[in-house]
Structure formats: C-alpha cells, structure tokens
Amino acid sequence: MELAINKPQPDTSMGEMTPRLHTVTRIIKDTADTFTLELAPSDDGQLFQFKPGQFNMVYHYGVGEVPISISGDCEKTDRMVHTIRKVGTVTNAFSRLKKGDTVGLRGPYGTAWPIDGAEGNDLVIMAGGIGLAPLRPVLYSILFRRRKFGRVVLLYGARSPQDILYKKELQKWRARFDLEIEITVDRTIVPWRGNVGVVTTLIPRTTFDPLNTTAMLCGPEIMIRFSIMELRNLGVPEENIYVSLERSMKCGCGFCGHCQCGQHFVCKDGPVFAYPVVKNLMLIREI
C-alpha cells in the first residue's frame, strides 16, 4: 500500500513544514507597535515568487511561527517584506530582531487579490488597521500598470493618527492625481485635521462607478461586514467584492485544521475570498 503521489512537487526535500532561513536586511519602525522587516534568503538562493494577498509562515528561533501577510512589491524580487504588529509572543520576539539576524520562512501560501480580473474597473480598496499591509502590494501592482484601471480609491481607517501605517508612502500617493487616498481615525489626542470616525464614513466622500467597481477589503470582520453593507447599498455587485479573512493557522497547508471557516481552509482556499463564497458564513456567530 503506497500513498498516491500524483503531483509535481517543488523542492521540499526538507518537507513542507521546514522553513528556509532568511536574513533580516532592513527594519523599519512604522508605529509604536508595528514594524516592517525586509528579508533575503540566507543561502543566496532564489526568493519566493508571490502574488499580492498571499502570506508566509514566519518562524522565530525557539519561539514559534506565525502567518504574516506579504506587504512588499511583487516586482521587487530581491526581498521579502513583512509588516508586523506586536500582539503576541512570537511577534514580540520579532520586534527584538536586529539587522543581520536570521528567521525562518515558509510560503508563499494562500490565494491572491484578483488584480487582473479588476482591469478596466474602478477599484475601491478598504483597509482597517494592520489590514493595510496585505493591500499595499495591490497598490504597488496597480501603480505598475496604472492605465489599465479606472479610478483607484484607498479608504483606510486607523485607531489614531499615531497608528497610521506607511505615512510617508501615503503622503506621496495622496499627492498623485491618479489615486484617491482617504484616511480616518477612530480617535485622537494629538492635533489632527483629518477625518474622525469609522472607515465606512469615508465612502460618501469618494466618487466611483459602483456598477463597474471591484472592491478589496481587509481588516477586522466587523469593519468588513459594515463596509460591504455600504458598498452594496451603493450598488457594487456582490461578486465584485473580495475580502481577506483571518483565522488561527499553524501550518498554512491545510494539515492543522485550525483555520477552518465553514468548509473553507482559510490558509489554502483563502485568505482572499470572493464575498459570495463566504457571505453566509460571515453572518453566523462563532463559526
């Protein structure tokens, strides 16, 4: 009795669950609790190819491994970029890394945002908090071939002005005439002349053609639910809405079971889903 082996396999002689070593080449401190790591393969080997929306399992020596979405530009093939918020044991350990340190990487895993499928449409990108990280590669890709898309709108909600990610980049993008960037914060204690309120309040400030719009959303599930409600009210077709979901993950390959959401393994069937696929599940408590 032999196990059926019917797929061409990449070089996983070490096994799917063993990471490849990468060196930290640059650390950018984004906010008080968020930082970006740039990584390069320690063995001078090939970098993983990835698509916007995918994630890697990132391993810290002796501490653990967590799924982190890729926040870099998929055209820049010399580095792997991860934006990480300190929330748990492993991410806290990552925050203490220094340039030249080594981490383990497996990936890339998961589905990608449908950028090719959105060509010709207006694009509405909605992000909440760290949810901007997996959407930044979308903006890079769009800017790489900007003329193929209609209006491009980024609506981004952060907790406070100090929590706004990628500030310099956002400023640069706001100065462009072919991007519309709207930012709001939940609250502020520092002087702030921008918007205050949840991210859905930004929708009426923007102009796009709802019937010919593709929307991509990533953030807390509550934010995604209300944002979709608003988009649907305006007439954005359900099948043009894409969401990225978050679940617990230990393997990224569908082996560990943790990430199940209904019949979907979020690690390999997601994290990016067409909204109609997960619509019913998003309405059930504790699914």
């Binding site: 032999e2 196990l3 797929k7 096994g15 669950m17 082996f255």
Partner: peptide, 24 residues
C-alpha cells in the same frame, strides 16, 4: 487521512513516511 495529508496543494512528508509501505 491520506486525502488530508496529500491534499489538492500540499503533501506532508512526515505522514507519508509513516504511511508508505504499510502492510495491511
């Protein structure tokens, strides 16, 4: 379990090692 550990995308070599050459 064979279908779980050799799914549509990934194959687990740890499972395969224990499952290979089973005599039933």
């Amino acid at each position: 379990q064979d279908k779980v550990f050799d799914n549509d995308q990934f194959r687990d070599n740890h499972y395969a090692a224990g499952r290979k050459d089973n005599f039933i």
